[in-house]
C-alpha cells in the first residue's frame, strides 16, 4: 500500500514536471553540463508525449552523437530535418554524423531542375504552403461572390478572371504543399539501421543467403513487410530482407 502511494506521488511529480518546456530546459542544462545520459532521458520524456519540435530532435540527436550512438543520432537528425529542412545546424550535424557511418552509398545526384524545384519547395513549410492555398481559396470565394452579385461593367469581368486565376493558384499551391510534404515525408518510408551491423538476406528467413552487409546509421528505404522482416533498398538499387528490429523507421 505504501509503495503504491510512493508510485502515485512519483507519478504526480512526473506529471507535474512533464511540461515539455521544463523537460526541454532540464535537458539543455544536462547537455551543457555534458551529462549526456540525463539529457537523453529528459528529451526522450518529451517525445513520450505528443509534443514535437525540430529542436527537440536536434538536441536529442546531439546527445546521442556525444555518447557515440550513431544510429539514434542519425535517426533524430533525420526527424529534426523533416520538421525543419532548411535549418543549417540540422543540415550540418546530419552531414557530419553521416560521415561517421561505414557504408558509403553515393546519393543520387539530382538534376538541375530537380534541385531547383526542391529548393523552391523548401522555401516554406508544408503548412505555410497549405495555408496560402486556403487563402487563395477564400480569395476565389470573395471574387466569385462579387461576380455573382455585382453587375458592374468593370467589376464583373474583373471578378470573373480574377476569381479564375485565384482558383488556379489555389489548386497549384495545394499541389505544391503536397510536393513539399513529399520532400520530408517520402512516399516510400525510410529507415535507419540501428544495429552495429546487419546481414541483408535474400529472403525473409533466418537461414537464407547473405547478400551483403550494412552498418549502423545507414538510411534505407522500406518497401515491403513480411512478418518480422522488412524488404529494404539501398540507394544504389541493392535490395534484401532484414529483421525489423534492426531498423528504426524515420
Amino acid at each position: 500500500m505504501k509503495w503504491l502511494l510512493t508510485i502515485g506521488a512519483i507519478m504526480a511529480l512526473v506529471v507535474a514536471v512533464a511540461q515539455p518546456n521544463d523537460l526541454f530546459e532540464q535537458g539543455n542544462t544536462a547537455y551543457a553540463n555534458e551529462e549526456w545520459a540525463t539529457a537523453i532521458e529528459h528529451y526522450e520524456a518529451i517525445l513520450d508525449t505528443d509534443y514535437r519540435s525540430a529542436s527537440i530532435h536536434f538536441n536529442l540527436a546531439n546527445a546521442y552523437y556525444q555518447i557515440g550512438d550513431l544510429g539514434q543520432a542519425i535517426l533524430h537528425y533525420e526527424r529534426a530535418w523533416q520538421l525543419d529542412p532548411t535549418d543549417e545546424d540540422i543540415i550540418f550535424n546530419k552531414k557530419l554524423a553521416n560521415l561517421q557511418i561505414i557504408d558509403k552509398v553515393e546519393p543520387k545526384e539530382p538534376t538541375f531542375i530537380g534541385a531547383w524545384w526542391q529548393s523552391f519547395l523548401l522555401t516554406a513549410s508544408t503548412n505555410v504552403w497549405a495555408f496560402t492555398a486556403v487563402l487563395f481559396f477564400f480569395l476565389t470565394l470573395g471574387l466569385g461572390t462579387v461576380f455573382l452579385l455585382v453587375k458592374h461593367p468593370f467589376w464583373r469581368p474583373f471578378s470573373f478572371f480574377g476569381g479564375l486565376s485565384t482558383l488556379v493558384i489555389a489548386l497549384l499551391l495545394t499541389f505544391i504543399a503536397h510536393q513539399r510534404y513529399g520532400v520530408t515525408y517520402p512516399g516510400t518510408p525510410e529507415a535507419i539501421i540501428m544495429a552495429p551491423n546487419v546481414y541483408v538476406k535474400s529472403a525473409p528467413k533466418a537461414g537464407s543467403t547473405d547478400l551483403f552487409i550494412l552498418h549502423e546509421g545507414l538510411k534505407v528505404t522500406v518497401q515491403e513487410q513480411e512478418g518480422d522482416w522488412l524488404r529494404i533498398g539501398v540507394e544504389n538499387d541493392k535490395q534484401g530482407w532484414v529483421k525489423a528490429a534492426d531498423l528504426a523507421i524515420i
Binding site: 519540435s53 529542436s55 536536434f58 554524423a97 508544408t126 503548412n127 486556403v134 481559396f137 476565389t140
Partner: peptide, 30 residues
C-alpha cells in the same frame, strides 16, 4: 557538431494540416 538549440516551438500530433478535415474544410469549403 554544432551546439544544441535553446529555443523551440511545439507542434502536436502529426504537425501538418494537409489531409486533415480542417484543411479540407478550409479549401473545399469556400
Amino acid at each position: 557538431i554544432r551546439y544544441i538549440k535553446t529555443e523551440t516551438d511545439w507542434t502536436r500530433g502529426s504537425g501538418t494540416i494537409l489531409g486533415t478535415p480542417l484543411f479540407w474544410t478550409l479549401s473545399a469549403g469556400p
